[in-house]
Each structure stands twice: as structure tokens, then as C-alpha cells.
Design a protein around this nucleic acid. Structure first.
Lengths: 202, 202, 202, 202
DNA sequence: AATGAATGAGCATTCATTCAT
DNA sequence: CATGAATGAATGCTCATTCAT
């Protein structure tokens, strides 16, 4: 009877919205966007079909907001990329740790994102943003290799960027069977060995 | 007057079938499986909707046959992988050349395949086959590194396999903007440098 | 304002469901199952095509439920068949009255059922049930003739069972032109005459 | 090379036509009209799809001609019905034998016909013809009972006509399990007993 | 805010029929 | 006479979306 306060309503809205987003993410990643109906999402989120449209304009909009969150995370990550000139090696190790941890914390999420990243129609609007992120990440790596005076810093950066995405792809595909931790360590050692090699080159 | 000969019919069937496959491949890769209707495929192939079903049992079957062709190519590739003990370096260079050439010759094709490889429902039936291919490729690389007495051959193999797939992913995504040739050359040089490094290590 | 109550919804569902069943029954009986499209049923029921699937899983399911209702009625009828030993003649007269009344009350229904009973594919799942009903009815009649010490009770039962179904067939076919009442009376008299005949035989 | 003679061609046409009719009858009776495609009929008849249209205007026409043949048989049967005044009992026994033999010789055929006889759309054009046949048959029976001075000849005729159709229905439904011969004999005895009864009534 | 009945556009698939050979 | 590739209308069914309550 007693009417809910503004704050209570806002709280309910926030929670319902998140429930929908969580359910949608899970189902999209699991069964694909087209094989997931609004009905199923509503069921998974324990709400009614109609309510979804109270929070999202359309199914496309729902997807868009999920991707946007991912892009935001990616932007944040790229935004914080800054090479500590005092200790570039440690800095890159930290970056790698962060990256892998991000992946491990929510593989479902990134599975969906990578899967989507190949869908032209959906990613069209995010293409620029994605390109910028890639650019930033590449610049960071290039800068790193250049500072350590490793030859062909751009090529090295591109190769390691590819290796990173490749590892992610393989991890997403093989999931628990993939030795993600081992690869992370080996990646670090591989980069470290580049340094040694350079020194030896002298 | 008289009906067409067996050979004439076979010829007609071969051509129509290929037209459909080509149209479907193009559209699936461009717009995704679910965003491509049989109607659209028929229009692109300049035939009627109904005729598609004269050649393929269903839309799923059409996709399956496209993927099967790809898997066949992959199987053939993996099947021919054999390290020439006399000249392992040259052998691997050749393999890399072949791989990149395969990609460059039909990027649309591989774009679709990679895109599909993340769709559980569609790839379910190909999962084992795919795993075997990956296994073979990995074994080939591991064997290579081991023969050249490079330390941690398995890790190196996995890293380079990831790098390869990452490069492919980036190429597919950026298409013409991606310096695929440069990366190929650099990849070779990178592997070559491993050898030098090993020798230096002594 | 607030959503409908459970009871309101149940009421709406009951009504819509019945509307669909009625429309489907009418059209199936009139034009046959295959010549009746879901679209037509929806139009007849004054609802949209899609709504049909809110109540029935498929067109087949819709038919199945119609037939199931009929089978239920038949089961109930066969279930209540019990010969009153005190007055078997009256008991059978009552049964005949019930049977004819069932037919007259909803000829459309039984027309559909008889028509369907010859469609192997549709009736496959009901075959056992139907056979049991026939068995029960036959046993009832046989028992009746045996109790009245009429010779060849099984043959008499089978003949009268055939006569009954034949009358129904003719009635369904000729509808209003068929003297159903007259046949009912004559049927009773015919059976009665069997009794007299037996007595005369002595 | 040598051109076929007119007669040869006519012969071929007759045979092909019959092959199609046979195949269609079999499949219609087995799977129903709507569940039988022209393609399947052609396959069963070992000819090409297109050829069917060389002999029949349409699928409906094919059915129509099948039914027409049946109607013709029925007409012939009804046409030959003539009560031998010298020996009406024997005459009716003969008729019953002929009727049952017709059924036993080609149950598939009559199964289809009975099944179709309830399909308004298909039988519309045959309704009058069918009604006339029924009329004739009824007249024959009525005449028989009247000649034998059995009371209520029309009612008796209708009852036995119904019994006959009921027996046919049951036979078609239960096929091999049905004691058709027994019922035929019992039917005859039942009619014979009517005569005795009448005599006893005096 | 919440519900779920109702709508209708869209799509895969079937199949009678045509027609070039 | 004979073939089967080709067509396209028809139909069952799904599902995003709307809306009365």
C-alpha cells in the first residue's frame, strides 16, 4: 500500500535492468543472438516478456548495450595503458596480467564479444571505436618495444598483439582444456627473451 | 525433342549447385547465417527459391556443405604437413607460404569459417574434426621446434599457432588495411631468429 | 493498471482455446484437415494466426486434442456400458438412445472422427484406444445377446455393431435427409423381434 | 529408329496410364491424397514426374479418374442388380457373394473410396451418382423384402444396407483380423431367418 | 512497475505444374 | 513419348513487439 519511494523505484529499476542484461549476455553467448528469444531472456531473468521493453527499446538495443559495456571496459583498459618509463618490463607484465585476468574473470562475456566482432551488421557502429582501441593497444606495445630498443618495434607489436588475440581465441574455443596460465607465463618469458637477445646482439 | 543426356544434366546440376554455394557463401560471410534468407540467396544466384531445395536439403544442409568443403581443405592441408628432415627451415617456410596463400585466395571463405567456428550450434558436428586438425598442426610445429632443439617446443608451437590465428583474425577484420605480406615475412624472420638465439645460447 | 488476475487470464485462455477448437473442428470436418490452413482457422475464430500457437503446439497438436476429446467421450460411453441384469432389454434400449443422442447432438464432430478414423497417419496413436473401445462395445452386446439366450451371440453382436456404424455412416453422409429416428426405432424393434423369435423357437 | 506404329504407341500409352493409376491408387490409399506427391507417384510408377501430366491434367484429375473407375464398377454392380423372381433368395445370396468378393479382391481400392466418400470437396461431383447408386441398391433390397412379404421392407432394406456398409468399414479397418467370411455367412443366415420368422408369424 | 494475451511480418519448406530439350 | 530442371504460390511456424489491464 505505502507507495515506494523514488529511491526504491530506482533501485528496482537498476536491479531488473541488470538481471535482464545478465540473462541476455549468458544466453547470447551460449546460443547466439538469433537463437535467443526475448521470451527466453525474460524467463531466465524471472520477469515477464513485456517488461524487457520497459528497459530496452528492442532486442537490438539490448545487444547494443551489452556490447557497449564491453567496449567501455576495453576503452578503460586502453585508456589506462601507460608505459612506466622507470620499469617498462614490469609495466608490460602488469598489463598482460590485467588482460588475462579480465579474460578469465568473464570468459562468457569475451566469447560473445569476439564472436560478435565478426558480425558486420552488429559491429558496424562500433567499428571506429574498436579500431581506436586496437590502435591504442598497438601504440602501447610499439612504444614499449621501441623504448627497449628492440628492432622492428611495430612488427613485434603486431605479432604479439596477434599472439594475444590468438591465445584468447584458442582459450575461448577450448575453454578449460586450454593452459591459459602457462601461456601467460611463456608469453612473458618470450618477451623477456627478446630483451636478452637484443643485449646478446650487441 | 529428346531429353537431355545424363552428362548435360550433370553439367547443369554442377553449375546450378555451384552458383548457389557461391551466393550462399558470399551472403553468409557478409550478413551472417541468420540474416541471410533462402530468398536472398536465390536472388543472388539468379534462380528461384524452390530450386535451392533441388540441390540442398535445407538451409542448414547448405551451410554444412560449405563448412564441409572448408574442413576438407583444412584436412588436406593438415594431411600434407610433413617436416622435411633435410631442410626443416625451408619446410616450415613453405608451410607458412601455403597457409597465407590459402587465406589470401579466399578471405571471404575463411572469414565465414572463423566466424562460424565460434557458433557452438553449427560447429558441434565439426568439433572433433576441428580438434584433430588443430592437434595435427600443433604436432607439426612442436616437432619442428623440437628437431631444431629449441627449448620448450610445445610452448613455442602453441604461441606461434596462436600468432598465426591472431594474424588471420586481424587480417579478416581489417582486410585490405592489414599488411599481411609484411607479417608473413616478419613471422619467418621471427622464427629464424629463434634458431640464432638457440645457437647463441650455447 | 495492475495486471490481470490469474483467474481472469485463465478465463481468457479457456475462451480463446475453445474458439480455436470450435473453428478447427468445423473447418476440419467441412474441408478436411489438409485443406484447412491455420490462417483460415484463425480467421474463423476471429483471432490472429500467431495466437493459435499460443494454445496449441502445432496444427497436428490441434487435431490431436480434438480427437482426444472425442476419444474421451467414447471412453466414457464405453466405460458406462453395464448391462442391467434385471432389465437387459430396457438397458440396451437406453444405450441405443444414448448413442443416437450423442450422434445427433454433434454430427459435425463425429463426421470428423469417422473421416479421420480411416487416416492411418493421424489415427496411429489412437488405434489401441479405439480397438479397446470397439472391444468393450462388442463385449457388451455379446453379453446382452448371451444373457437373453439368443443363439450365436458373438455374430449377432458383430452384425448389430456393423449396422450401428453403417447407420451412422449413412446419417453423416445424407445428414438431414436420413430418417435417423425411424432407424433407431426400427433397430430396437428388430432386436426385440430376435427375442420373440427365440421364444417362438422353443 | 524404326518409328513405332500407331498401335504400339497406343499400347504404350495404355500401359503407362495404367501404371500411373495403379501407383496413385496404392499411394493414395496408403498415405492419403495430400500426403502423396506427384513425385512419389512417378517414382512408384517408374516414370518421370513430367510424364504424369502427359496422361492426366492435374493431380485432382488423376484422383477423379480413379474415383470414376470405382464409380463405374459401382454403377455396373447396381446396373446388374435384378431380382430373379423365380428364386429371390438365391439371387440375393449371389449379390451378397458378388459384393463381398469385390471387396476382398481389392480392399485397398475400397478403402480409398470409403475414405474419400467423406471428403466433401472431392466427392462433390460424384454425389449425385453416388446417391443414385445407393438408391438403386436400396430399391433392390426393398423389392426383395417386399416380394418375400417381409413386413417393413424399406426399413429392413435400410438396416441391411447399413449392416453391409458397417461390415465393410470394420473389415477395412481391421483388415486381416476381421472374420469377413463368417460375417458373410451369418448375414445370409440372418436374412434367411427373417423368412422363417415371417412364416412363423402366420 | 508488471503481466501475458494478441498481432502480423518474415521465413523455411513443399509441391503441383511448366517447359526446354 | 519422355525427362527432370526450374518456378512460385501456398503454408506452417517463430518471434519481436504492442497494449489492455
Amino acid at each position: 500500500m505505502s507507495p515506494r519511494t523514488k529511491e526504491q523505484i530506482a533501485q528496482i529499476r537498476r536491479e531488473s535492468r541488470q538481471q535482464i542484461l545478465d540473462a541476455a549476455l549468458l544466453l547470447f553467448a551460449q546460443n547466439g543472438f538469433h537463437n535467443t528469444s526475448i521470451s527466453t531472456i525474460a524467463k531466465e531473468a524471472n520477469i515477464s516478456k513485456g517488461l524487457v521493453y520497459n528497459y530496452f527499446e528492442s532486442k537490438d538495443d539490448l545487444l547494443r548495450q551489452i556490447v557497449e559495456t564491453a567496449m567501455q571496459i576495453g576503452d578503460d583498459f586502453a585508456g589506462h595503458l601507460e608505459l612506466d618509463d622507470q620499469d617498462p618490463v614490469q609495466s608490460v607484465h602488469q598489463t598482460i596480467d590485467d588482460l588475462f585476468s579480465m579474460l578469465e574473470q568473464n570468459p562468457t562475456y569475451w566469447k560473445l564479444i569476439i564472436s560478435l566482432s565478426l558480425k558486420e551488421d552488429i559491429m558496424l557502429r562500433f567499428k571506429d571505436q574498436l579500431k581506436q582501441q586496437a590502435q591504442k593497444n598497438l601504440a602501447y606495445l610499439t612504444n614499449y618495444f621501441r623504448q627497449l630498443q628492440i628492432p622492428e618495434p611495430t612488427n613485434h607489436a603486431m605479432l604479439y598483439a596477434a599472439a594475444l588475440d590468438g591465445i584468447f581465441l584458442h582459450y575461448i574455443y577450448a575453454q578449460d582444456l586450454y593452459p591459459l596460465s602457462d601461456m601467460k607465463d611463456f608469453l612473458k618469458r618470450s618477451i623477456a627473451s627478446l630483451l636478452r637477445q637484443k643485449i646478446d646482439d650487441r
